[in-house]
Lab assay of single mutants.
Amino acid sequence: MATGGRRGAAAAPLLVAVAALLLGAAGHLYPGEVCPGMDIRNNLTRLHELENCSVIEGHLQILLMFKTRPEDFRDLSFPKLIMITDYLLLFRVYGLESLKDLFPNLTVIRGSRLFFNYALVIFEMVHLKELGLYNLMNITRGSVRIEKNNELCYLATIDWSRILDSVEDNYIVLNKDDNEECGDICPGTAKGKTNCPATVINGQFVERCWTHSHCQKVCPTICKSHGCTAEGLCCHSECLGNCSQPDDPTKCVACRNFYLDGRCVETCPPPYYHFQDWRCVNFSFCQDLHHKCKNSRRQGCHQYVIHNNKCIPECPSGYTMNSSNLLCTPCLGPCPKVCHLLEGEKTIDSVTSAQELRGCTVINGSLIINIRGGNNLAAELEANLGLIEEISGYLKIRRSYALVSLSFFRKLRLIRGETLEIGNYSFYALDNQNLRQLWDWSKHNLTITQGKLFFHYNPKLCLSEIHKMEEVSGTKGRQERNDIALKTNGDQASCENELLKFSYIRTSFDKI
């Protein structure tokens, strides 16, 4: 039985969820670079991206490699990797027998973001014989899940209580170790020597080791999670996991709180800001991140802002960003909400898709409305799209047979046209069989910064309504002859009103 693990408890099935942008060198404390989270699957090609990484700022997932063999891993080693800020997950990587050479110096898994409450997941690794993470000293947050690894031993010899604050939620089941077939031998045991430290858990006094050649490092209890030197002297209180010299914040392997210019500090002093819960960055760093993602459509890219001495992905609820200094300031009234469309555009074809934009005031991208039916549609669209004030790209209304009016965009005031449909149009209306009105132009103002209007096959939309939009939106004169079809717009509506004058002759039985 794995020490510190839980057996036999019912657990939810383990679901495996399925960018080499360097964020800056980590400095003297770390020998390499800070790398983003990685999802490495199918083959070993991307694994080489770990070569210079000291910190993975995010998670590391290595999974679904069915053609790899043990010899493929023999020359692979990433000794610079010290810390993973989120979680480490391995799933069905064939041929991998140990992690001792792959990650010989991995010391800390912070667990800032977890995989279903777990910071370390080893699942269905069919050839893994031992973990071998002999320098792993601290899992700051989260638990361990090690399950269905039929060859995995050296679990009962690990004292997880020396690595985690609590072992109650560890789930370590259905491994070879369960069948008591392992016969784990710690260093020196074969020669009758006791080389590794022994600890007591559940009444068992057991030597602690990761492999037959690597003991588990056990520091004096007084050192807590700070770690200790090879001689057993406690590291500085700002260290986490390990250090090369005692009581020196510049000799830590990793930091308990924050890293700044080669030393570990309790908090980031001005003019620095907390970033990702582990390091200090200056304003320029946060500003660069903001600008890199301002026009990016890459998933996970955030326009970072500053709030409460932190550089964070977005302002919290009730705050909006001051564009001059990136500071989050309290909103006066309802907060603006910028919604970034991942692929640059979004099609609204149902109430469900409209709900995804609920509360958005600025759309960074283009909207395509293609709704053919739905219950209580006008009210639903207004509830979900009615706060949109600005669209950076274009607005396209296409084959939306259920629409009679666009009044559900009740606050839309600006279409920038930074991206144009077919390279020309910022407003595009095609084949809307029941569209009769755009907006009530006596109450609604709309500016279209650039781009043209396109109207074709809107049989109940009168040309007068379209011409009014040209005047109000500032697009009059931009359109070419064929942009607004004269014969297919309003051709099934009563669009022309003329005053009919009647004269009559009164007659009676005795007068003409």
Rank of each mutant, 00 (worst) to 15 (best):
H28N: 13
L29S: 09
L29I: 15
Y30L: 09
P31R: 06
G32H: 13
V34P: 10
P36K: 09
P36C: 03
G37K: 03
D39N: 04
I40G: 00
N42S: 12
N42Y: 03
N42L: 03
N43V: 06
L44P: 05
T45A: 06
R46L: 04
H48E: 11
E49L: 09
E49C: 08
L50M: 11
I56V: 03
H59E: 08
H59D: 09
Q61R: 09
I62C: 02
I62P: 00
L63T: 08
L63R: 01
L63K: 06
L64M: 04
M65I: 06
M65Q: 09
K67W: 10
P70L: 13
D75S: 10
D75R: 07
L76H: 05
L76A: 11
S77T: 12
F78E: 00
F78Y: 12
P79I: 05
P79V: 05
P79H: 07
L81S: 00
I82A: 12
I82K: 04
M83N: 00
T85A: 12
D86P: 00
L88N: 01
L88H: 00
L88T: 00
R92W: 03
V93R: 00
G95R: 09
L96T: 11
L96H: 00
S98Y: 05
L102I: 05
N105M: 05
N105R: 04
L106C: 02
L106Y: 00
V108P: 00
I109L: 07
I109F: 02
R110A: 10
S112V: 13
R113C: 06
F115Y: 04
N117A: 11
N117H: 08
Y118M: 02
Y118H: 07
V121F: 00
I122C: 08
F123G: 01
E124F: 03
E124P: 00
H127S: 14
H127A: 12
H127K: 07
K129W: 07
K129S: 09
K129T: 09
L131G: 02
N135M: 15
M137P: 01
N138D: 05
N138G: 08
R141T: 00
G142K: 00
V144M: 13
V144G: 02
I146P: 00
E151Y: 06
L155W: 04
W160Y: 07
S161T: 15
S161Y: 11
S161M: 15
S161W: 05
I163N: 00
L164C: 15
L164I: 05
D165L: 09
D165K: 06
V167M: 05
E168T: 12
E168M: 14
E168F: 12
D169L: 12
D169N: 07
N170I: 12
Y171T: 11
I172G: 01
V173E: 13
L174M: 08
D177H: 11
D177F: 13
D178G: 05
E180L: 12
C182F: 04
C182K: 01
G183Y: 13
G183H: 13
D184A: 13
D184M: 14
D184P: 02
D184E: 13
I185M: 06
I185D: 03
G188C: 06
T189S: 08
T189H: 12
A190Q: 15
A190C: 07
A190G: 13
K191E: 03
G192S: 08
K193A: 12
K193L: 03
T194C: 14
T194K: 09
T194I: 10
N195P: 07
C196S: 05
C196E: 02
P197W: 04
A198M: 07
T199E: 08
T199D: 03
V200I: 09
V200M: 06
N202G: 15
G203D: 15
Q204R: 08
R208P: 02
C209V: 03
W210A: 01
W210M: 02
W210V: 02
T211S: 13
S213Y: 01
H214R: 08
H214C: 05
H214M: 11
Q216A: 02
Q216H: 03
C219L: 01
P220N: 14
P220F: 02
I222W: 14
I222Q: 11
K224N: 03
K224M: 09
S225P: 12
S225Y: 11
H226I: 08
G227W: 04
G227Y: 06
G227Q: 04
C228W: 00
C228N: 03
T229Y: 10
T229L: 13
E231L: 08
L233F: 05
H236I: 03
H236F: 04
S237P: 14
E238R: 13
C239G: 01
C239L: 00
L240F: 06
G241T: 05
G241R: 03
G241E: 02
N242I: 12
N242A: 11
C243I: 00
C243Y: 01
C243A: 00
Q245L: 07
Q245F: 14
D247A: 13
D248L: 08
T250N: 07
T250C: 07
C252P: 00
C255D: 00
C255V: 00
R256E: 08
N257T: 07
Y259D: 10
Y259M: 08
L260Q: 04
D261L: 09
D261G: 06
D261R: 03
G262S: 08
R263W: 15
R263C: 06
C264P: 01
C264T: 00
E266V: 08
P270C: 09
P271K: 12
P271D: 03
P271R: 13
Y272V: 05
Y273K: 13
F275I: 03
R279W: 07
R279C: 09
C280F: 01
C280P: 03
V281S: 02
N282E: 15
F283Y: 06
F283S: 10
S284V: 05
F285Q: 08
F285I: 10
F285W: 15
Q287I: 11
Q287A: 13
D288A: 14
D288V: 14
L289C: 08
L289H: 13
H290T: 08
C293P: 01
K294P: 14
N295F: 12
R298K: 11
R298A: 04
Q299L: 12
G300Y: 08
G300T: 14
G300K: 15
G300S: 13
C301F: 11
H302Q: 12
Q303S: 08
Q303T: 03
Q303N: 13
Y304R: 05
Y304H: 07
H307W: 06
N309Q: 13
N309T: 11
E314G: 09
P316F: 09
P316N: 05
S317G: 04
S317N: 09
G318S: 10
G318V: 08
N322G: 07
S323P: 14
N325A: 15
T329G: 15
T329C: 04
T329Y: 07
P330T: 03
L332F: 01
G333L: 02
G333Q: 15
P334M: 04
P334F: 08
P336G: 09
P336L: 10
